[in-house]
């Protein structure tokens, strides 16, 4: 039982000085949680920056992310990640529309847009799985980075001393940070599904309050927001 509910039961004086920011506690809590989470991501990205600044060489993203799974050839730099980015942006838009419909009490609209959002999230995760698989096939792992100064090299060549490997931190940071982001997307999808089920069951219709959609929406947009920076640091710079 929330404190607000207790108040309503015990006797309400929530006039005057309460709710000074015109935001209910749940949403505010979600915001502070997101700020906290932002610091976690910021720390990880700062680790990325620090280790990259301490490395004497770093692979050029154009030369690493230059394929589309299922399409032959290595001449499509950044195309696949652009698709992933768009999937995430569009799923953010559908989420906003769900929130929008929620505010207008439009249950059907909420369900429709939530379904689209979940599909978008799942699609993003699928794409990420494809990209990981592809990079692992190329030889990228936590222990080896095939993207050396002289192009794609194999572990054997490096062991034999005929080629130079790239900094292993590249793979470690890539898998760790995109993995951490992917975990957030995954949990976002799970939460979205729960919320969708609740919406279908009319939980929010009954309480006349679709704020839960808004809170979950904030989380979803945050995941999108983090991707902007992951995209910036791994794929652009």
């Amino acid at each position: 039982m929330s404190a607000e509910a207790i108040t309503q039961k015990v006797g309400n004086i929530w006039g005057g000085g309460t709710r000074p920011f015109n935001v209910r506690y749940g949403k505010m809590m979600m915001w502070f949680f997101l700020i906290s989470d932002a610091f976690t991501f910021a720390t990880l990205l700062i680790v990325y920056g620090t280790l990259r600044f301490s490395a004497d060489w770093w692979p050029e993203p154009l030369n690493v992310f230059n394929t589309i799974p299922g399409v032959h050839g290595n001449s499509y730099p950044l195309v696949f990640v652009t698709i992933m980015t768009f999937i995430l942006i569009v799923s953010s838009v559908t989420m906003v529309l769900a929130v929008y419909d929620g505010h207008h009490g439009n249950k059907k609209g909420v369900i429709k847009w939530m379904v689209y959002t979940i599909i978008g999230g799942a699609a993003f995760l699928g794409c990420q799985a494809l990209e990981w698989t592809h990079l692992i096939h190329e030889g990228l792992s936590l222990y080896f980075n095939p993207f050396g100064p002289d192009g794609l090299v194999t572990k054997e060549a490096v062991m034999a001393g005929t080629a130079v490997a790239g900094p292993t931190h590249f793979g470690q940071l890539f898998f760790f940070i995109t993995g951490f982001h992917g975990t957030h997307v995954l949990s976002g999808v799970v939460i979205n599904i729960i919320i969708l089920v609740n919406t279908v069951n009319g939980v929010y219709e009954k309480s006349g309050d679709y704020e839960m959609i808004e809170k979950v929406g904030l989380y979803w947009h945050f995941v999108d927001l983090v991707w902007v920076f992951v995209f910036l640091l791994f794929y652009l710079i």
Partner: peptide, 24 residues
């Protein structure tokens, strides 16, 4: 709220170093 995330991130990376052979 603002500082514990840094420890969380640091600890996660440490766990990777301990268990998965990374070199952060």
């Amino acid at each position: 709220v603002l500082s514990f995330p840094a420890l969380l991130a640091a600890a996660l990376l440490l766990i990777f170093d301990r268990s998965f052979g990374t070199s952060f």
